[in-house]
C-alpha cells in the first residue's frame, strides 16, 4: 500500500521512538480519549513499523480503547492517528488493508464459521468465488477446516477465537490488530496462534497484539509498548525494558522444609538484598534473579531442604508496572 500523494505521514517529534522494523506504518500523535470525566487514553504518541509489536498492560490499562482509537472505531478526543499516512477516523478506505480481531466474543451465531468468514470477506470487495477461496485459505491457516461447516454457536471458546482470526486474515491485510488473541485458547491452539502471528510478522506485515500477559507477548515478539492508566510507560525492545526491570529488586517466594536454615544459607550471597519470613515460606529479594533461581534449587538439593514451591509474582505485568510506574 503506497502513501497517496496528498496524504503525508505525521511529523515525527524527536521524543517518539519507532517500535518495529522498516518504515512507520501506524503513527499516533498525542492521542487522548475521555469517557466523560475518566481518561482512558492519555496523550499517547507512537510510531509502529513492520513486524509484530506487543501492546502490554494490565486489565483496564486502556489497551482496548487505544486499539479502538488506532483502528478508527472511536474518534480520539484529542490527537490523531494515521495508518500508512492516511487519517483513520472517517476514512473507510484504510480498512481495505486492515484486519481486526476484536476482544469481544461476538458473532452471527446462526452462521457457520465458513459463511461468517465468506460474508465478511465479500464486504472487502471480493467476488463470491474469490471470497470463498480466501475464506477457506484463512480457515485452513487457523486449522479450523473440519469444523468450518458447523454453526458458530456450537464452537468452543478456542474455536471462536480462531474463526475471529480467520475473518481478520482472509482478505490478506497488511496491518492486523489483535485484541487479546490468545484468550480462551488451549495450549496447542495458543502455540498455533503464536506461530501464526510470528510468521505474519516475518512476512513484513504489521501486527499490533494486545495482551495483559507478558510471557504470551514475549513468545511473539521482542518489541513492546507498555501501557498503564492510559499512558505509555515504556516502549521499545523487550530486553531494554527487562534491563529497566532488572535494576529493581526481584522477589521470589520459596516454600521449603526448613525456611530458617534456607535463609541462613542465602545470607552469604551479595545479590540477596532482603529476606522476609511468611506463614508458608520466605520471600527473597535479589538483584540477580537469573543466578538466584538456580542457586535456590542447588542449595535445597545440596542441603536436603525439600523445595515445595518457588514462584515469583514479579513475572506478571502488575509487578512490572509497580517497577516502572512510581
Amino acid at each position: 500500500m503506497s502513501t497517496p500523494p496528498d496524504k503525508k505521514p505525521l511529523e515525527k517529534p524527536p521524543e517518539v521512538n519507532q517500535i518495529g522494523d522498516g518504515k512507520v506504518v501506524i503513527a499516533a500523535r498525542r492521542v487522548s480519549y475521555w469517557y466523560g470525566q475518566v481518561i482512558a487514553v492519555n496523550d499517547v504518541s507512537l510510531d509502529i513499523g513492520e513486524g509484530v509489536v506487543g501492546l502490554l498492560g494490565p486489565n483496564g490499562a486502556g489497551k482496548s480503547t487505544l486499539l479502538k482509537c488506532i483502528t478508527g472505531q472511536i474518534r480520539p478526543t484529542t490527537g490523531m492517528v494515521t495508518i500508512d499516512g492516511r487519517r483513520v477516523w472517517d476514512d473507510p478506505t484504510v480498512y481495505a488493508e486492515l484486519g481486526f480481531v476484536p476482544e469481544q466474543d461476538a458473532f452471527y451465531e446462526e452462521m457457520s464459521g465458513r459463511d461468517f468468514v465468506i460474508h465478511l470477506t465479500r464486504l472487502q470487495g471480493f467476488s463470491t468465488a474469490d471470497a470463498t477461496t480466501l475464506a477457506e485459505e484463512a480457515i485452513e491457516t487457523v486449522a479450523l477446516t473440519e469444523q468450518a461447516h458447523r454453526p458458530i454457536r456450537e464452537y468452543s471458546k478456542g474455536m471462536r477465537q480462531r474463526i475471529k482470526i480467520a475473518q481478520a486474515l482472509a482478505h490478506r491485510p497488511r496491518v492486523i490488530f489483535l485484541d487479546e488473541p490468545l484468550s480462551g485458547t488451549d495450549p496447542v491452539g495458543r502455540r498455533h496462534i503464536i506461530d501464526l502471528i510470528r510468521r505474519l510478522g516475518d512476512e513484513g506485515r504489521t501486527l499490533l497484539v494486545s495482551s495483559h500477559i507478558l510471557h504470551e507477548v514475549q513468545a511473539m515478539t521482542d518489541n513492546i509498548v507498555l501501557i498503564n492508566r492510559g499512558r505509555v510507560v515504556a516502549d521499545g525492545n523487550l530486553y531494554r525494558i527487562r534491563e529497566m526491570i532488572d535494576e529493581h529488586p526481584h522477589r521470589i517466594f520459596v516454600e521449603c522444609a526448613e525456611p530458617r536454615k534456607f535463609a541462613s544459607l542465602m545470607t552469604a550471597f551479595d545479590d540477596v538484598l532482603r529476606l522476609e519470613f511468611h506463614d508458608r515460606g520466605i520471600f527473597v529479594s535479589t538483584n540477580d534473579p537469573e543466578s538466584c533461581y538456580s542457586r535456590i534449587r542447588d542449595l535445597c538439593l545440596d542441603n536436603d531442604l525439600k523445595l515445595q514451591a518457588m514462584t515469583s509474582s514479579d513475572n506478571n505485568l502488575s509487578a512490572v508496572f509497580r517497577y516502572l510506574v512510581p
Binding site: 483502528t71 472505531q73 473507510p92 480498512y95 481495505a96 486492515l98 481486526f100 461476538a106 465478511l120
Partner: peptide
C-alpha cells in the same frame, strides 16, 4: 465492529 472495519462509509 466487523462492519465498521470494512471499507464501507
Amino acid at each position: 465492529t466487523y462492519l465498521t472495519l470494512r471499507p464501507l462509509p
